[in-house]
């Protein structure tokens, strides 16, 4: 019986191999083993969305993903999308509108928001609210977050229209 599995994943563009305890969820692995503390564990039962990150390009709950199940997969975290600049426009929009307070939900919210831009480029406020409805924020009233995402969508639509 294997309680620890050698696991190889492409983490923020870099291939890493570690022996990981089977029971370790992806957020704990990233935080404890890789020092990537940007993904937050807010509930560890898949409700709050603070641990939202990408596996093979799709957003998932990090706390409901076993790290060993990520063998051969591509993982992107808030650190990755920040360093690559992929999230820069969204982060700027969040900053401008104060779409965060304590910042604990923010990495998950940003991961969800940039996923929305990719999948629902024409979303209106109601659809934005629906898309981020799995990400809990206790500080803001969500209004500024919706504003920020909407601003990015509008800006992209304008650019799209010009090209």
């Amino acid at each position: 019986m294997d309680y620890e599995i050698e696991t190889t994943m492409t983490l923020n563009g870099t291939q890493v191999t570690r022996r990981i305890a089977a029971r370790t969820h992806l957020v704990d692995f990233l935080r404890e083993e890789m020092g990537l503390t940007g993904s937050h564990a807010g509930c560890e039962h898949g409700v709050c969305g603070a641990c939202t990150l990408r596996v093979n390009g799709d957003i998932v709950r990090g706390c409901l993903t076993l790290a060993v199940a990520c063998n051969g997969k591509t993982i992107d975290t808030i650190e990755g999308v920040s360093d690559s600049g992929e999230a820069a426009e969204m982060q700027h929009a969040f900053h401008e509108r104060n779409a965060l307070q304590c910042g604990f939900c923010t990495p998950g919210m940003i991961m969800c928001a940039i996923d929305l831009v990719k999948n629902k480029p024409a979303a209106k406020r109601e659809e934005i609210r629906e898309y981020i409805s799995g990400n809990y924020c206790r500080c803001t009233g969500y209004h500024a977050i919706v504003d920020a995402i909407e601003a990015v969508l509008i800006s992209k639509q304008r650019l799209g229209g010009k090209s």
Partner: peptide, 19 residues
Amino acid sequence: EPRANAKRLLQGRGSYTDD
């Protein structure tokens, strides 16, 4: 004025106690 200290939080580079 947008908050200066929000930028690190937006990049997942905060220093929460568990970090």
